[in-house]
Design a protein around this nucleic acid. Structure first.
Lengths: 121, 121
DNA sequence: TTTATTACTCTACAAATGTAGAATAATTTT
DNA sequence: AAAATTATTCTACATTTGTAGAGTAATAAA
């Protein structure tokens, strides 16, 4: 099961904080902050979906992500690539290189990284 | 306004066909194919959202995408990059290079592309 | 020990999504 | 012309999503 938009927004906050009490999560929202109960509902649903866990501390719960941002992001990417590039990562890579506008400096850095990757093959 | 999942699925079909009658769209679905009326509803909503247009041909309509796949994809990518990499395309690029597993050949091709891009700067 | 406060859970409800039957209009076949 | 077919629109309804008030239990403050 996937995260909905507002769930994902909350997840972003949780990833940033790494772990947090509900109160702090609400606090971290940009204005207008949602009601505590709203966040509570989202957290509940996210627990059902196995994206969030918590540790009981006193009578409070410290929530934490059960899925890493990296992992989640990868899945998203793969989904996109699958849909739009017929599952071809390299096709995507070339599209990406052509269509985004990285500066020359950034391009050089990227090439650097690729070189390194090639070396390690 | 964004496309929902099932709308996006239909959009993929429409992009592939470039233009098509409702009947053909339904036909193009993998089994189990949805009811004609289901596709009709989706098309209607997609028109409201300005993602689809049509040309009347006799008493039928030939539907076509009003947003290119490329353009749509770019927006999706930018959304992801914004959320996960704080809007830094280059940060994303390096993540991508590290985390996906392109073959050596693909990596070389990619570097080739980057080189060309740099040249054109 | 009454009263607040805190931290959740339950219930609710409008909007969006996924899916499709029923109705209607135009056209073609008998 | 009556009957069947085609192409769309209307209406409907179960789920999921976005948002939050009301209720409850435990603890802290008066």
């Amino acid at each position: 099961m996937e995260l909905s938009n507002s769930e994902e927004q909350l997840m972003q906050i949780l990833w940033k904080k790494d772990k947090a009490f509900m109160k702090d999560l609400v606090e971290a929202y940009p204005d207008p902050k949602p009601a505590l109960t709203t966040v509570a509902t989202l957290l509940k649903r996210m627990q059902d979906k196995k994206f969030v866990g918590y540790t009981q501390i006193g009578r409070s719960r410290e929530y934490f992500p059960k899925v890493s941002k990296k992992n989640y992001f990868s899945k998203q990417m793969n989904g996109l690539i699958k849909n739009f590039f017929n599952d071809s990562t390299s096709q995507f890579a070339s599209f990406f290189t052509q269509e985004t506008d990285l500066s020359e400096k950034e391009l050089r850095e990227l090439r650097e990284l690729i070189d390194e990757k090639i070396k390690n093959k």
